[in-house]
Simulated assay, not measured.
Amino acid sequence: MRPHTRRDKLDHDRSIASDHHHGHLARARRRSGTGTALLTNLAAPMTMTAAFLAHTERFGCPRKILAISSGAARRPIEGWSAYCAGKAGLDMFVRSINAEYAQAPAERAVRAVALAPGVVDTGMQATIRDADFAQVQRFRDLKENDQLASADDTAQRIAAYLERPDFGSTELDDIRNT
Rank of each mutant, 00 (worst) to 15 (best):
R2W: 00
T5W: 10
D13A: 15
R14I: 05
S15N: 13
I16A: 06
I16R: 12
S18I: 11
D19Q: 12
H20P: 00
H22V: 14
H24G: 06
A26E: 15
A26L: 12
R31G: 12
G33T: 10
G33C: 04
T34A: 15
T34E: 13
T34L: 09
G35Q: 09
G35W: 08
L39G: 13
L39P: 02
N41A: 12
L42Q: 10
A44G: 03
A44C: 04
P45W: 11
P45M: 06
T47V: 02
T47H: 11
T49G: 04
T49F: 03
T49I: 08
A50E: 15
A51V: 14
A51D: 14
F52K: 08
F52A: 13
T56Y: 00
T56Q: 09
E57T: 03
E57P: 01
R58T: 13
R58P: 05
C61A: 06
C61V: 10
R63L: 07
L66D: 10
I68K: 03
S69E: 14
S69Q: 07
S70I: 10
G71Q: 10
G71T: 09
A72T: 12
A72L: 12
A73L: 10
R74N: 11
P76V: 10
I77L: 13
W80S: 11
S81A: 15
Y83L: 06
Y83E: 07
C84S: 09
K87A: 14
L90E: 01
L90R: 02
L90Y: 02
D91C: 03
F93P: 08
F93T: 05
Y101F: 15
Y101C: 08
A104T: 08
R108G: 02
A109V: 03
A112Y: 02
V113C: 08
A114G: 07
L115H: 04
A116M: 03
V119R: 00
V120D: 01
G123L: 07
A126D: 15
T127R: 12
I128A: 10
R129L: 09
R129H: 04
R129G: 05
D130K: 11
D132W: 00
Q135P: 02
V136D: 05
V136C: 00
Q137M: 06
Q137L: 04
Q137N: 09
R138Q: 12
R138E: 05
R138D: 10
R140I: 07
D141S: 14
E144C: 07
N145Q: 11
D146H: 03
D146T: 05
Q147C: 14
A149Q: 13
A151G: 00
D152C: 01
D153R: 08
D153Q: 11
T154S: 14
T154M: 11
A155H: 06
R157T: 08
R157Y: 08
R157C: 09
I158R: 04
I158V: 11
A159E: 04
A160M: 05
A160V: 02
Y161K: 07
L162D: 06
R164E: 05
P165W: 03
D166N: 12
F167K: 00
G168W: 01
S169F: 01
T170R: 01
T170I: 13
T170A: 10
E171G: 11
D173A: 13
I175L: 15
R176F: 03
N177E: 14
T178F: 02
